[in-house]
């Protein structure tokens, strides 16, 4: 009998790796940024499983929240300047 937490960890790790793969393979810049944010979100769930709630909070707020918006702000600037 496999413990439930291990199954959850397996699911989260697979999700993080798939999201990273999507972020690196996709042709769209926006999808890549969202994929990196998803990696951070999966990592923060993994931190909860690894008994690190402090780190999980920080990663969820900073890694997947603020960082993603920093990327979008800069991409918005670039689009406004006529870049692609």
């Amino acid at each position: 009998m496999i413990p439930l937490s291990f199954l959850l960890a397996l699911l989260v790790c697979a999700g993080a790796l798939i999201a990273a793969g999507v972020a690196l393979a996709t042709a769209s810049r926006a999808t890549a940024v969202l994929g990196a944010g998803l990696v951070s979100l999966f990592a923060s769930v993994l931190f909860v499983i690894l008994a690190a709630p402090d780190v999980a909070m920080t990663e969820a707020a900073i890694g997947s929240g603020l960082t993603t918006f920093l990327f979008f702000f800069v991409m918005g600037r670039i689009r406004r300047e006529g870049g692609k």
Partner: peptide, 9 residues
């Protein structure tokens, strides 16, 4: 869980 950095974020 929490503290200055998380709350600041």
């Amino acid at each position: 869980p929490g503290g200055g950095f998380q709350g600041g974020a």
